[in-house]
Simulated scan of single mutants.
Amino acid sequence: MEETYLDVPALAKLLGTTERFPRRLVAERRIRYLKAGTHVRFPASAVEEFLAANTVEPIRPRRRMRRAA
Rank of each mutant, 00 (worst) to 15 (best):
L15G: 00
R29M: 15
T18C: 08
T4M: 14
A27K: 13
R29Y: 03
I31N: 05
R29L: 08
P9G: 07
L14G: 02
P9K: 06
K35G: 08
Y5T: 06
A36P: 02
L6S: 06
R20P: 02
A10Q: 13
P9M: 05
V8R: 03
R23V: 06
Y5A: 05
G16I: 00
T18V: 14
A36Q: 06
R20I: 12
A36H: 05
A10W: 01
P22M: 08
V26A: 02
L15W: 02
L11C: 02
A12F: 05
T18Q: 12
T17A: 08
M1E: 13
R20Y: 12
F21Y: 05
P9N: 04
P9H: 02
E28N: 07
L11E: 01
A27D: 11
G16A: 05
L6P: 00
E3H: 11
A27I: 04
R23S: 10
L11K: 00
V8F: 08
V8I: 15
K35I: 12
D7G: 05
R23E: 12
T4H: 14
D7E: 14
A12E: 06
T4F: 14
P22H: 13
L6W: 12
L25D: 13
R30A: 15
L14T: 05
P22W: 11
E19L: 03
R23L: 09
R32Y: 04
G16Y: 01
L14S: 02
P22I: 11
T18W: 08
R30H: 11
L15A: 09
L34S: 14
P22Y: 06
Y5P: 10
T17D: 08
A27V: 09
A12Q: 04
R23F: 04
Y33L: 10
G16W: 00
E28Q: 10
L25N: 07
K13E: 07
K35S: 07
R23A: 08
L34W: 14
A10S: 11
L6Q: 08
K35R: 14
L34K: 14
L25W: 04
A10N: 06
L34R: 11
L6R: 04
L6C: 07
L34G: 13
L11D: 00
Y5M: 09
T17F: 04
A10L: 11
R20G: 04
M1Q: 15
L25H: 11
Y5E: 01
V26G: 00
P9E: 03
L11A: 03
A27S: 14
R20N: 07
F21I: 07
Y5V: 11
L25T: 07
R23M: 13
R32L: 02
D7I: 09
T4D: 15
R23W: 11
L6V: 09
R29V: 12
K13R: 13
E2S: 15
A10Y: 01
T18H: 10
R30Y: 09
K35F: 03
R30E: 13
T18N: 13
R30S: 10
L11W: 09
I31M: 06
R29C: 12
V8L: 09
R30G: 08
Y5R: 12
A27N: 12
L14N: 01
R20H: 09
E3M: 15
T18I: 09
T17P: 01
T17N: 10
T17H: 09
A10E: 14
A10K: 06
L14R: 06
R30V: 03
V8K: 06
I31G: 03
Y5W: 12
R20Q: 11
R23G: 12
E3D: 15
L15D: 01
L15Y: 01
L6T: 03
L25Y: 10
R24F: 02
A36M: 08
